[in-house]
Design a protein around this nucleic acid. Structure first.
Lengths: 227, 227
DNA sequence: CCTGTTCACCTATCAGACAGGTCAATCATA
DNA sequence: TATGATTGACCTGTCTGATAGGTGAACAGG
């Protein structure tokens, strides 16, 4: 039994449009024919065509600009996507943590190697602010995020940065809920400073071992967390 | 001067729809009101609404089924996306390689810890096939991919697997072109076996050091590659 | 040279109409 | 009674004509 599946018009059209772009070798910013012409070319109605365009726009293949036309988006920009089904439970959290270990660990290794004195000063300022907020009993979630982002920047690897940034959304989303922010930040607080010192001193092994301690303390929290 | 930007109707509608889903706490598979009702609810025309739906469908938030209605997709499935602008040049390749080091290195560490005897046999079979193809002078790109995927599976971390899989698309896309497949596979060939042996023996440090050698040889190739 | 008008060309959005998919209740028949 | 066809309510799919409004170039007047 073969599964017969209807192919929606808008889907065919979006396929054809992509072929069109490929065949004509259109590059970023090139203009596609107007909607009216495209409906003639493909022999479909305006609505189907517009749905196809909207679909492609959502997938960042084209950009529709009012009054101007439809334009090709940068094809050299590579988009990676992935989906992860997650229930909030110990194993998922531990799995996420492992990925963070891998990614951010590498970032810290690179940062310890490549950090500039200017970046060191920036992070120092950030940590001072961190301390100030902490001692004032205020929320440290934003400043914590800023700290880690500065570190990632210091790693000077744009691809790692991109992967890590998109991953951190996942990370924050699933760590905020079960484990309170306070708990998280309290446990990791001291390691921020020791780790930074090692990075500033370009001491790669020390930085990594401090990062490991930080992660270990998170792991402890998760393991102690009862579902 | 503030940049005034028009918010398209379809965009507002798609926002509202997402709010609607959140507020009503709709879960996977739940049905949304029909298009006609939604047009009434939001006071917009059919086409705007359909474009909004198509947009959400492209973003995997809803699924439109002909004759049935519009359904919510799994909201617990987290989608991470990122984009990377890349020119094919040494630095980009090295940056990509660093990310692979981080991600696949972690996978190998976990695999060496958790691999089962069944998985060991599978990978053994894979490597035998690898050797056969290699000696027969045939293309080893597919079998190489299969090998790495089996290793990743053995790491038993679904999130790492997902991130790594989406990343490997990027990886392959940008490594195939400048550096010939043959060159790539020749250099890394021997390490596949030594690394596997270490993993099968649950020898984590050895596995990692073999992986490091493999990555180093890739790095050499890239560095020797003249733009 | 600068400025405002006009016009051709586009996209944005709506409303109405018809085609066709889906499902369940209903009804006819063996 | 059981089975299978029919019908009708409820959807989405698609087309079309109309109107509104954004954009930029050409053009005319100061």
């Amino acid at each position: 039994m073969k599964k017969i599946q209807k192919i929606h018009l808008y889907e065919q059209v979006s396929q054809e449009l992509q072929n069109y772009i490929q065949e004509k070798e259109l590059k970023e910013g090139d203009k596609l024919p107007s909607v009216d012409r495209l409906t003639e070319m493909f022999g479909v109605g305006r609505s189907s065509l517009r749905e196809a365009l909207r679909y492609l726009e959502a997938n960042e293949i084209v950009k529709i600009e009012n009054g101007k036309g439809v334009f090709v988006k940068d094809m050299d920009t590579f988009r990676f996507t992935g989906k992860v089904k997650i229930e909030i439970e110990r194993n998922s959290l531990l799995s996420i943590l492992d990925v963070r270990r891998a990614l951010e660990g590498k970032a810290i290794e690179l940062a310890a190697r490549r950090i500039t004195s200017k970046q060191i000063k920036e992070i120092e300022a950030c940590l001072n602010e961190y301390r100030r907020l902490k001692e004032g009993g205020q929320s440290t979630s934003k400043i914590d995020l800023a700290f880690h982002q500065l570190l990632i920047k210091a790693a000077a690897n744009p691809i790692l940065e991109s992967v890590l940034n998109s991953f951190s959304v996942l990370y924050n989303k699933f760590f905020d809920k079960p484990l309170g922010n306070t708990q998280l930040f309290d446990a990791t607080y001291p390691f921020h400073f020791t780790m930074f010192e090692a990075i500033a001193a370009h001491d790669v092994p020390k930085a990594l071992s401090e990062f490991d301690k930080l992660m270990n303390s998170l792991e402890e929290i998760i393991k102690a967390y009862e579902v």
